Simulated scan of single mutants.
Amino acid sequence: MDMESNLLVTDATQRQTGTPMAVTAEVAVRTLLSLLGGLMVAVLVYTIATDGLPFRMELLTRWMAALLIDFYINIAIIGAWVVYKESTWVMAALWVLLLICFGSVTTCTYIVFQIYKLTPEETSKDPFYFVLVRHQKSDVTEHRKGVSVITARVIFAVLGCFMLGTLLYTLIVDGSPFRSELYTPWVVATLIDFYINVVALSVWVAYKESSWMDALLWIVFLICFGSITTCVYIVRQLFYLSSDHPIFLILFRNNHRDLKSSDPPLMAGAKE
């Protein structure tokens, strides 16, 4: 059994019999993301109907450009999870393309779809774990070699620094973003799109953090600083891993990372 299988097995051994709270949380997240996805569809339709298509150069102000960079860094991070999650490159590429084109509508659709795929047993134990983890089908033989922990640290640190530089540059050359003339219909739509993705990332942070105070603090930072916080948080999580760990372990709670087991039947809960 390879390292990934061992780590997933041992994560499963940590799950005790589920509680009603797990089911309630799953229903709450599913409902919330369904509503937010529907809201974003309505916002897109309304904005196109009232302001036309967004592919116009006059819309691309400095702050709109900064917002788009912020938006797509978070999309890249969500897309990285989708690539890990999907068992084939074709499906991964399709979902990533939809993320690029439709943003949080795709984020919400994908997560809700993953929630609906959970078995009753998975839902009762730890629905967030089973949504996050890759469900490897037994007939799929495709293997992927992910980037190393050190490489991932560099990538996310560079992305965070790039966004910080973009933010500082835009503040210097264009002033504060809190000016009414900046808030065109498409800027407002993009902000809504951006913050729906922030909600999805906040659910992940709340799942990972053992303290509600820590989770709340990180969520406030996500709201205020967007993808800069996302990158800082991921780099921080990566520093909890040793260089020989697979980077997918940052998806899960810290106390599930370093356990060892070799009991194959326990993997049944993490397979389709």
Rank of each mutant, 00 (worst) to 15 (best):
A268H: 12
V9R: 13
F55V: 09
I111D: 00
E142G: 03
R15A: 13
N74T: 10
D2E: 11
A93T: 09
V131R: 00
R153F: 09
L259F: 05
Q14W: 07
L97I: 15
I111R: 01
W218L: 04
I250R: 04
L67C: 07
I219M: 06
E142Q: 10
I78T: 10
V147Y: 10
I48A: 14
R257F: 03
T61Y: 14
I250W: 05
T229N: 02
A22I: 08
M213P: 00
V235Q: 03
N6C: 07
T190Q: 07
V149I: 12
I73A: 05
P20Q: 12
A270K: 09
A12V: 13
T88W: 05
P127D: 02
A200V: 09
R15I: 15
G103C: 03
A92R: 04
C108H: 03
D11V: 02
T31D: 11
L164E: 08
R153P: 09
R56L: 11
L53E: 11
Y72F: 15
V82M: 09
F248M: 01
S243T: 09
E58C: 04
H256F: 05
S261V: 09
Y84D: 08
F248A: 03
P185N: 04
S262T: 13
T141W: 08
V9H: 14
T106E: 02
M267S: 13
F221R: 06
I73T: 04
A65I: 15
L167Y: 15
R15P: 04
T19C: 08
L159N: 00
I155N: 10
S202Q: 02
A66P: 08
A200Q: 01
V158Q: 03
I48Y: 15
V83K: 07
D11L: 11
L98T: 01
I192D: 02
M3K: 13
A49M: 13
L171C: 10
L222Q: 07
V43H: 05
L171R: 10
D2M: 03
T13N: 08
N6A: 09
T141S: 11
L7Y: 15
L67N: 11
A268S: 12
F225R: 05
W212F: 12
D244C: 00
F248D: 07
H245P: 00
W63N: 11
H245L: 02
L36F: 08
A25C: 11
G103A: 01
R179V: 06
L217K: 10
G165S: 12
D193L: 00
P185V: 05
